[in-house]
Nucleic acid binder design. Structure first.
Length: 292
DNA sequence: CACCATGTTCCTTG
DNA sequence: CCAAGGAACATGGT
């Protein structure tokens, strides 16, 4: 369930629950998600350690751990992949079918479950060192963004998925940001003029900030049996009649009317992934008035 | 059976 | 060496 907003909401949810908790035991059910860390090394590093901070970088969760004694703090890095979830559940509960890693914290277990096992739970920090700026931070400026896009031959939609350009945008919010900026997803990144880059820069920040705000209002129970299981990003939240449809304006809306102009939303495939857009609102050289 | 899915990484091709 | 495209990873939903 993971793009930056979903991870941010999860981090805020977990932070107070994990703070000062001590890891008593480490169960690795799917060693693949640790790669390249070995189960033995993870167990040795984590057992007895205390959670002292929980944060986020891009789509990665960062758990700062204090080992027993005077050892230096350690960083545990998590990533939800496509289907990962992390939550606390009572220790007496049965483990879910796709539990990948389980940390015993006493009366609760901290569970990382992931149906497809694309996620990560590792001591390897190399991935986070390659990330671009946080989109909501001061580090992310329209000027730098424009500079970076200048030499890119790729279409802007594909470029937005490049985590070294700006961290945390995924397939959903890439389509959403381009729609809001009125820019066609096929446009070559280098062909955007500075005004368009500014529009896109603002749209990225708005779309992400709004999603975090939305997610923060959703009641969460990551223990996960009902519909309110934290998958607020799309589809799974609400009464089954499309609570989310008012939130996402183009993603997964192929053939449905554009919320702005009423024309049909189109779907096509770029780099093997679905892109959704409105051919009318996202034409070339669209000057958005903001009044529609 | 077919095709689709929120992500990243590796391999091939140019 | 770099860029771009595709496959792989693994499981489930429709």
């Amino acid at each position: 369930m993971p793009e930056l907003p979903e991870v941010e909401v999860l981090v805020r949810h977990l932070r107070p629950q994990l703070r000062n908790k001590i890891i008593r035991a480490v169960q690795v059910k799917r060693p693949r998600v640790l790669r390249p860390t070995s189960p033995q090394r993870l167990q040795r590093a984590l057992r007895g350690s205390k959670f002292i901070a929980v944060s986020r970088r891009g789509k990665y969760l960062l758990f700062q751990l204090q080992p027993p004694g005077k050892a230096a703090p350690r960083l545990l890095v998590g990533h939800l992949g496509m289907t990962g979830r992390m939550y606390l559940a009572p220790s007496q509960n049965p483990l879910p079918k796709h539990a990948a890693v389980v940390l015993s914290l006493g009366s609760d277990n901290f569970i990382f479950e992931d149906t497809r096992y694309f996620g990560r739970f590792t001591l390897d920090v190399r991935a986070i060192q390659k990330l671009g700026p946080e989109p909501l931070s001061e580090e992310f400026s329209a000027e730098d963004f424009a500079q970076a896009l200048k030499r890119c031959e790729q279409s802007i939609k594909i470029k937005l998925l490049d985590q070294s350009l700006v961290a945390g945008i995924g397939n959903i919010y890439a389509s959403e940001a381009l729609f809001r900026a009125g820019i066609g997803p096929r446009t070559k990144a280098r062909r955007l003029n500075f005004e368009q880059v500014q529009q896109l820069w603002g749209a990225i920040r708005e779309v992400i900030a709004e999603a975090i705000r939305f997610g923060s209002t959703v009641p969460l129970s990551y223990a996960g049996t009902g519909w309110e299981d934290g998958l607020f990003y799309f589809g799974s939240v609400g009464d089954g009649r499309g609570f989310y449809q008012e939130r996402l304006q183009v993603y997964d809306r192929a053939n449905l009317p554009c919320v702005v102009c009423g024309n049909g939303i189109k779907r096509f495939v770029q780099a093997g992934r679905s892109t959704f857009y409105c051919p009318h609102c996202q034409r070339r050289k669209t000057a958005k008035t903001g009044l529609d």
